[in-house]
């Protein structure tokens, strides 16, 4: 859909040397994917283990939690808001689920669903605060993040929760057909569901409209507040799901579970072309951003870059991706 708009805009205002601009525009437009392929090739060149099936399986697993969080972050961005509390929500809600099983004795499935319900409710609450109280989303969710991180520390008393049921950790460990992990399937399903939501439903269309111009959306008959609350609620649900998957995969919940994902979860959708000003971005872009970040992380570990340099080099790679994207927006819309 995005490409169609771009092409149409080009026909309206023909540019000199349109041919070479179009090629460059196409390259910049797909820079995430080109950069991704380039990095896979580079890492594969330095260490051929990177290109093995085993490592690919590893990357898909690693990408799953980040991907779920990235999708959760993308939704508020699309309505021109932000939610910083998502990774903290994932950690906190997973702990609720785990404790409901271990301390309250609920069946693991019920406990897990309870955790996700709590995450969804937190998202709903954030949405209410932002729309009805008109709190600024950046600060509201920042404080919510601190509250949830603190609450997780209080719940766990600084200890790591490891008393998880076999059922609970199944999805994080199970494999099929020659060692392919099951967990990424959840991410694939979430990607499909989210693209259907954004492309084919009135809610999806309304999300783009509200992010593009909230005032115009209101006068066009869209219930802006309701759309924002729904967006935050779905986002909370995805955060809960991500929290469950992370705990299931690691078979443990630490006292700061999820926190390390914060910046990556925000970076992934933005690298993938989701605009921080709202109304622009799609699911495929989020996937690209998530895979790019995961490949950088895994790749740097595999070519045995000394750990002191990993953060810096990874940061530079993200910087380049974002800079190229900014150049694209600047010159090619």
């Amino acid at each position: 859909m995005n490409d169609g708009t771009l092409a149409a805009a080009k026909t309206v205002q023909p540019q000199p040397a349109a041919e070479s601009r179009n090629v460059l525009g196409w390259v910049l437009h797909n820079v995430v994917w080109i950069w991704l392929i380039a990095l896979v090739a580079i890492f594969g060149f330095f260490n051929e283990f990177f290109l093995t099936i085993f490592n690919m399986q590893n990357i898909t697993v690693q990408a799953t939690v980040l991907g779920m969080l990235g999708l959760a972050v993308a939704l508020p961005l699309l309505v021109a808001e932000i939610d910083l509390s998502i990774p903290a929500n994932a950690g906190f809600s997973a702990a609720i689920g785990a404790l409901a099983y271990s301390d309250l004795g609920l069946p693991w499935l019920v406990a897990m669903l309870l955790g996700i319900a709590v995450a969804t409710a937190i998202g709903f609450f954030n949405g209410l605060c932002i729309t009805k109280l008109k709190m600024v989303s950046l600060i509201e969710t920042l404080s919510m993040m601190i509250i949830l991180q603190g609450a997780l520390l209080a719940l766990t008393q600084g200890k790591t929760l490891t008393n998880l049921s076999d059922g609970y950790i199944w999805i994080g460990q199970a494999t099929f057909a020659g060692g392919w992990p099951v967990m990424p399937l959840v991410f694939v399903l979430a990607l499909i569901a989210m693209s259907i939501l954004l492309r084919f439903t009135t809610l999806g269309r309304s999300i783009y409209a509200v992010g593009g111009n909230a005032v115009a959306s209101k006068s066009a008959g869209i219930r802006v507040d309701r759309i924002k609350v729904l967006t935050y609620t779905i986002s909370g649900f995805l955060a809960g799901l991500a929290g469950f998957l992370l705990a299931s995969w690691q078979m443990a919940i630490t006292s700061n579970q999820g926190s390390s994902y914060l910046l990556y979860a925000i970076a992934a959708p933005i690298i993938g072309g989701v605009s921080v000003f709202g109304g622009r971005g799609n699911v495929l872009g989020v996937l690209g951003g998530v895979l790019l970040l995961t490949v950088i992380q895994v790749g740097l570990a595999i070519i045995s870059v000394p750990s002191f340099y990993v953060g810096m080099i990874g940061g530079c790679m993200i910087f380049i991706a974002v800079a190229i994207d900014a150049i694209r927006v600047r010159y090619f819309g």
Binding site: T5, R205, Y208, G212, N213, A216, G279
Partner: peptide, 12 residues
């Protein structure tokens, strides 16, 4: 400000 969402298509 209030009439249309500029970045969306005419059809949308």
């Amino acid at each position: 400000r209030e009439g249309s969402v500029g970045q969306m298509s005419i059809g949308d």
